[in-house]
Amino acid sequence: MSTGVTDQFPGGALAAWEQGEAQGRRALRQRQARILMFVLLGWLTMLLVWQWGSAQLPGRVLPGPWPVAQEMWEIVASGRFVRHFLTSVTRTFMGFGVAALVGVPVGYAMGRSRYWRAFFHDGVTISGTVPALTYAVMSLIIFGISTIGPVLAVALVSTPYVALNVAEGVRGVDRDLIKMSEAFGRSRREIRRHVLIPTIVPFVYAAVRLSFAVAWKVEALTEVFGGRNGVGFEIRREYQLFNVTGLLAWMFLFIAFMLVIERLLAVSERRLLAWRPQERAGI
């Protein structure tokens, strides 16, 4: 009785199903369009509030969006954008390099032995609480005004991230895989090379992605306190010149650059680690 309908109209059910599917897709598209509209509305409101504020406040206290956009264009066109951002981002990634060199062994030890986990636990958790100002000024005191200061500050900030992530990765290494490798007579070196390291690398990468925003801000802060070039130095200069337009222009470039790099890191992480089953499931 129940099968009679589909037997009679073999194409009917299929057509209804397709119709329903199309309807669902349309509804989804409509909802996405509405969401997008409200995202744009959010941006628009921000700009309007800014414009309104700049009209209300006297003089050059808060320049409107348009002068700031012009200033941004000038900074980009004059080549200062590329020069200073390249300097700062190079230092940030040098800091990440140092953080990986220190953080990977620490994290490895933390993941494999209970003693080292307890040993490093307090230091790693407390360092996330310490104000960024401390790292910036400490690296200045140690190295003075130099290019190494920001690198050290970035390394200090991001090493705990790397260590914690690697520790988690090492603890998550498939014990069975190691046992099987041992059973098949693989040497310790081979196990490290083919089992441990491939498991750890994604966690180092994730740590860099997670700590990029924090590290990037600390890098700029260190340059504010004592740099001769870089984004932070430019921000400091605009402040000393009392140039609000310039400060806002550098701020928006700073934010845009940070969001782009974060997106790039996320995309490249997915590409590089696409072979991992859990990553594939995540997409």
């Binding site: 801000k217 802060l221 504010v224 921000i235 400060l247 701020m251 700073f254 934010i255 940070m258």
Partner: peptide, 11 residues
Amino acid sequence: LSIPAIIWAFL
């Protein structure tokens, strides 16, 4: 979230 505290301090 992306604006660093130092910018707010200066402004």
